[in-house]
Design a protein around this nucleic acid. Structure first.
Lengths: 322, 322
DNA sequence: GAACGTATAGACAACGTTGTCACACCATAT
DNA sequence: ATATGGTGTGACAACGTTGTCTATACGTTC
């Protein structure tokens, strides 16, 4: 900028004015400055600007894994909102590791992001408190923060979705319905188990429940164990998209009524089509981002806790008879 | 930092030394400083650090769409490499729009990213020249830059993969093989068409070629047109993952030999399983990122042009007889 | 006891912007 | 002729770091 100023024969401040489109510059002078800018290939140093102005126009996004379609869709929605507000996205995958989540969040804060959108992995987010008090707003998505942190959250109706799915299978005549979920420490897994258990009532049988890391071997073993029972399950409710796919592979064509939580591409092309409880990851990301930007534009008030509806999409697998 | 210094009763510089783990500070003093830091909840302002030191420890990634599994996988690989080098990722989706690509790249440069990884959408990247000359290294992935820009590229063997697929179908007795590709302006689409055409030789019939935006309606119309020919195709070669899925939906169960370029989740669960030419998006991202970091650590030399191999994964659909 | 080396600490400038204030100039009103 | 006001421009400080240079205190060596 200094160079531009000396080439154009004006003061630093005048160049600054031209670059920022501030009024009060003679059109002829402005033109001279613009010429100098293109001649030198100058581009403003945002770091210095940030330092001076205090706003980075950057939003931090922490998700579990960008490579997971659910989170990549959410990510895209957040990005679209951010771009429309002139912000860029600094993003990172926590890989479901609390330590990495913490590190990402703190690194983002050290870079003074204007706001944070977090899909939490850990259970303790006290490390965020100083940042929140310092005025960096945060929105939690898909899962709530650990105890003692009152912050905006955007969740889906996990228990309600599980009830829907379980009722759907019950209404098609199933009584032995198995549930395959992720580790119970994961909020969504616990809530979905809750909805399932709730709806099963006296039909609940803990031998038909598996909560574990969704590895092909583990899922296969658990399924085999259940199918070897005296009264084996006639239907399966899988607690997330990855588990649904893993279970489908483990079943290897053996017919079994199945409903999965989370929709996924090609669910309609399988035979039978896979009935799912669909959430809207794009909408979730968009709503979270919009909420964050409302906070950034100064909206105060108590933390909002949104719960987005889910819907059942019948495609065949959930309508199979026992 | 100033506050920390006054609380600890030391000079600014001493705090800086402690924060950066520089030697030459009395352990007792360092302890006092650390106490003040935790008491005040101080965290270093990276913007100021960046301004002073000139390095942002940030890499910019421009892809077509994070929500596309191919690019989200690539993105994750880049992120992993970046994190392992202590860098963060600033990422954006171009939506296949040259203007947005340009804007993203220039915004990243204004923020002084240390390096760029770009999946280009446009054909003209002259806007990058000043940045390259200013020393910001860039690696192009999946597609090469526009003419006149000699920069590192990591591509896959598009034409070779198309030849593999076409030969595979020919060897299974097909003579009427249709090709469904994206718009010919897209590099990968053009290269794949080339490989297909090449291998078809005298069997090539342009009525069996469709190059278009992968919309369900358009693909369906083109397929219907081909199937209504006197000598309709007995096999289909689809030019990318999205087209494969769109074509499978358009075929709606009508059996037809099919090979798709790009692997996708669940290809093995469809009946018949979908034979694909698989690239390795994770490997592509990793290699591109590693190349970028080699440049960042000062490696000079002529631009590298890597071409990663592809392999055919037979799953049934590509082995159907005519 | 003078000269020197080492460990620790601080003063100060600089990075590239932008906000505040002041100045010079000209046109118009008194 | 002098006051008033707007317009265009510039000087300067500040944002929060870090690199360079210097100062002090203390111990060691000749």
């Amino acid at each position: 900028m200094k160079d531009v100023a000396s080439v154009a024969g004006v003061a630093l401040k005048t160049v600054s004015r031209v670059v920022n489109g501030e009024p009060g510059v003679n059109p002829a002078t402005a033109e001279r400055v613009r010429e100098a800018i293109t001649r030198l290939g100058y581009s403003r140093n945002e770091s210095a600007r940030v330092l001076r102005r205090g706003r980075t126009s950057t939003v931090g996004l922490v998700i579990e894994d960008v490579a997971d379609p659910f989170y990549s869709t959410l990510s895209r929605a957040v990005e679209d909102v951010a771009i429309s507000r002139g912000c860029l996205l600094l993003s990172g995958s926590s890989s479901e590791e609390p330590a990495r989540e913490r590190e990402l969040v703190l690194t983002f804060c050290a870079r003074r992001v204007d706001g944070l959108i977090v899909v939490p992995a850990g259970e303790d987010h006290s490390f965020l408190r100083p940042e929140l008090e310092a005025g960096t707003p945060a929105v939690f998505v898909d899962r709530p923060p650990g105890p003692g942190l009152d912050v905006d959250t955007v969740l889906c109706d996990n228990a309600g979705g599980a009830r829907l799915a379980t009722r759907h299978l019950l209404s098609h005549g199933h009584r032995r319905i198995a549930f395959l979920g992720d580790r119970p420490s994961i909020f969504t897994a616990a809530r979905r188990l809750h909805g399932y258990r709730d709806t099963m009532g006296r039909l609940f049988d803990e031998r038909l429940v598996s909560m574990r890391v969704p590895s092909p071997e583990g899922v296969r073993a658990d399924l085999d164990r259940m199918l070897a029972l005296d009264e084996p399950p006639t239907a399966l409710f899988t607690g997330n998209g990855r588990l649904t796919v893993t279970a489908l592979r483990a079943l290897a064509g053996r017919p079994m009524a199945l409903i999965g939580f989370d929709d996924f591409e090609l669910a309609d092309l399988l035979r039978p089509g896979v009935t799912v409880v669909a959430q809207d990851p794009f909408g979730m990301g968009r709503i979270a981002a919009e909420l964050l930007f409302r906070r950034l534009s100064g909206e105060s008030g108590p933390a909002e806790h949104l719960r987005l509806p889910v819907r059942i999409v019948p495609r065949g697998s959930g309508e199979l008879p026992p």
